[in-house]
Design a protein around this nucleic acid. Structure first.
Lengths: 253, 253
DNA sequence: CAGTGGTCTAGACCACCCC
DNA sequence: GGGTGGTCTAGACCACTGG
């Protein structure tokens, strides 16, 4: 008798817990199903609630679970592939664009943005807010910065803000000949306003996609898009993207 | 007298703490500097250590801090931009490739990989392990799966495993005419083996880049690369990538 | 060895959702 | 109101690093 398995290398409890839960999710639960509440789960596994939560947090980070305050913890569907880099050399707001403009104001951008746009630190730029939906769910928000130089034909007479203004600004931007774009992706945490729009808590992990559009040898526009990291897989390139469902402890070997 | 600031909307302590610390990092610390230890910091701010840690975790996630057990918490340098999508239609291991092969074995891949490769579930494939270094630091590890069909000229006589074998497999792969590649990026958590190679703890956040290489109408190779999310900014596109340093509560507005 | 961050506990209260 | 997840506390011990 006795334990058949030596605890030769001690593994953190939450790590082991995560593995056990992950396997249970694969075999005993289906998408959308509600898990037992955290207090019950912790009791069942004989750990403190904080320890259980550490395991749940990781599973949520990996897109396997979805937790909602006041509701419960549910099994998440596989991540949605959202195309990010498909059409090279196309303006935002062009045909086939998945974004919807919700607002536009003229304001002084953050210093880092002003530097990238090569505008003065106190110079206001057109700032378009847009949102992206996939499968009926909001998956990303964006701030699109367009210096006044890029839209010279814009008249101050038009609506000064709001969606109509956004459309006008984008229409003017399209008069330029697009030259190219660079993109960068990094991990971030949701600001309070983005979190609200994405139906997440502030600080939730997000993928920040920064795109610089160039025309006439200058930076014509700069986009900072914030994608929910738990539900999105960003796809680039020729087709719809690779369909590997990500399963951390079994990716390899 | 009295409080000049109403606590009209209650903000979590760790969130406020994060803001305060973030500002202190900007103004009072320089890159590489060591912060006071967690117990002292918690005492200084009048919170429990767990609360303080919640704030530090977020700052580490955002790439502002680096924490090492037994050493301390230091101010992190800005994220490194690592080029991911530069040259379209090029094989891994070609000229200018930033990766270094460390090993190669022939083994049965995970089920999800076999599905993407369109090989049988029990069919072994060449599996090349590679590593990527930037600025003297290991930033990513990769598993590159190459089905036997893609390298028909390979002889079993050569070294059966190790770096030499990896070079042979890649050389044979280069005989094919590359047709295209898709890529996907998503958030993941480091497996134990990747964590060791990246000098991080298991479960640390990573950016998983999955690339499918196609040739002759088939999937010729599949790469699953794991980048440290705390230190890397993945860049795509024409040039070196956008240089916006990411500052969550000041990205916009 | 002393000091650091990492893990874990057993509680408490709060914000939110739905009935 | 009752149940959920989110925040917070005040401890304890462990694993790792460095002198």
């Amino acid at each position: 008798m006795g334990t058949t398995q030596l605890d030769s290398v001690q593994e953190p409890k939450y790590w082991h817990l995560k593995t056990v839960l992950s396997e249970a999710l694969d075999s005993e639960f289906s998408v959308g199903e509600i898990l037992p509440n955290e207090r019950d789960l912790a009791a069942r596994f004989g750990v403190a609630r904080a320890t259980l939560r550490q395991a749940l947090e990781q599973l949520e980070l990996e897109g396997r679970l979805q937790r909602r305050r006041g509701v419960g913890t549910t099994v998440a569907p596989p991540r949605v592939g959202v195309a990010v880099g498909g059409e090279q050399h196309a303006w935002p707001g062009g045909p086939g664009d998945a974004w919807q403009a919700t607002d536009c104001v003229q304001q002084v951008p953050p210093a880092a943005v002003a530097a990238a746009l090569e505008t003065g630190a106190d110079e206001p730029v057109h700032t378009v807010r847009r949102a992206r939906t996939s499968g009926g769910q909001r998956v990303a928000t964006e701030l699109l910065y367009i210096p006044a130089d890029s839209v010279p034909g814009l008249t101050a007479i038009d609506a000064p803000s709001g969606p109509a203004r956004a459309r006008t600004v984008l229409r003017e931007l399209h008069r330029l000949e697009p030259e190219g774009q660079d993109r960068a992706v990094e991990l971030g945490s949701a600001r309070a306003d983005d979190a609200r729009e994405l139906d997440r808590l502030p600080g939730s992990p997000v993928l920040v996609v920064t795109t610089r559009f160039t025309a006439e040898g200058r930076t014509a526009a700069l986009s900072v898009a914030t994608y929910r990291a738990d539900t999105c897989r960003l796809t680039f390139g020729d087709t719809a993207g690779v369909e590997i469902h990500h399963d951390p402890e079994r990716r390899a070997s």
